[in-house]
């Protein structure tokens, strides 16, 4: 008796190994399919829409109108100081979705099912981080709209402003790989979220995002002025509202690249070995 004929029917690729070319093509195709799947969730779940849109708007309003009056920002209006910071804070928060999404997929067993499909191994992580990058692009548009509505004005030029937004998106993408590591270690999505915030809070709030670091006590100032979020905020702020940019831009690119170089292999390793 031999294997049943049904084994290979309707499977043009079954029974032979694909070449390098089609492997690459499939890797791209798998990533596109999964990215779309990840994005659908953001559109269809009201809670995620809320966190994506309402929360950053509240932060803008809170700092612009409630706290803003008490914060001194020499040489720049507070709204112009704030909006670049809000961009970074919101997109860093957005990167947490990577950890939540991965933990949820692991928890529900859908990643287990993906592992049994003849798809590219890498596509689960690339699609997840890519989806969160695209989601952040939408959020960026929203923050820009709200920012302009509450009085933010570009003091440089539109290209520099866009470069600033791009710099922040690249940084948030890098953070996604870090949060991917957390998501792959967390037993479920709630824990992933809880595990992410102790990393996120000091990074976003002990930074130059909302207040000048000079106003902080000296023990905190050292951390606050050199940690990556401040570097990216300062770079984006310089690009959007003026100031020396070159060194800051290179520093923030270096941070983003460095984070990916260290944490992406860690995430991939964890993904491969966790079963």
């Amino acid at each position: 008796m031999s294997a049943p004929a049904t084994a290979v029917r309707d499977r043009p690729d079954a029974g032979r190994e694909p070449g390098i070319g089609s492997r690459l093509g499939w890797g791209v195709s798998d990533t596109v399919v999964l990215t779309r799947r990840n994005l659908v969730k953001y559109v269809r779940i009201p809670e995620s829409l809320f966190f994506s849109s309402v929360q950053p708007v509240m932060f803008v309003l809170l700092f612009r109108y409630v706290f803003g009056g008490a914060i001194r920002t020499p040489g720049v209006s507070y709204v112009n100081y704030l909006i670049p910071g809000i961009f970074v804070q919101t997109m860093a928060f957005g990167a947490v979705n990577t950890s939540i999404g991965l933990a949820e997929d692991l928890q529900k067993g859908i990643i287990e099912r993906f592992r049994a499909l003849p798809m590219a191994r890498s596509s689960v992580l690339t699609a997840r981080t890519l989806a969160d990058l695209l989601r952040n692009v939408v959020v960026a548009v929203l923050i820009a709209a709200v920012g302009f509505a509450v009085g933010f004005r570009i003091e440089t030029n539109v290209l520099a402003f866009l470069a600033g937004v791009g710099l922040i998106l690249v940084f948030a993408y890098a953070l996604s790989w870090g949060f991917a590591v957390i998501g792959l270690f967390a037993p479920n999505s709630e824990t992933a979220q809880v595990m992410s915030f102790p990393v996120l809070f000091p990074l976003t709030f002990a930074s130059s995002a909302f207040v000048p670091v000079q106003s902080m006590p000296s023990w905190l100032r050292g951390f606050a002025s050199h940690q990556p979020v401040s570097v990216v905020v300062d770079a984006a702020r310089a690009l959007m509202v003026g100031g020396p940019t070159t060194s800051l831009v290179w520093q923030s690119v270096a941070w983003s690249v460095g984070i990916v170089l260290v944490l992406a292999p860690l995430a991939v390793h964890r993904y491969r070995t966790s079963t």
Partner: peptide, 18 residues
């Protein structure tokens, strides 16, 4: 190659509910 030969379904319906 083996992944192209079988189907898998289980107790935990691993489909995307969204």
């Amino acid at each position: 190659l083996v992944r192209r030969l079988f189907g898998l379904a289980g107790q935990y319906a691993a489909v995307d509910e969204n």
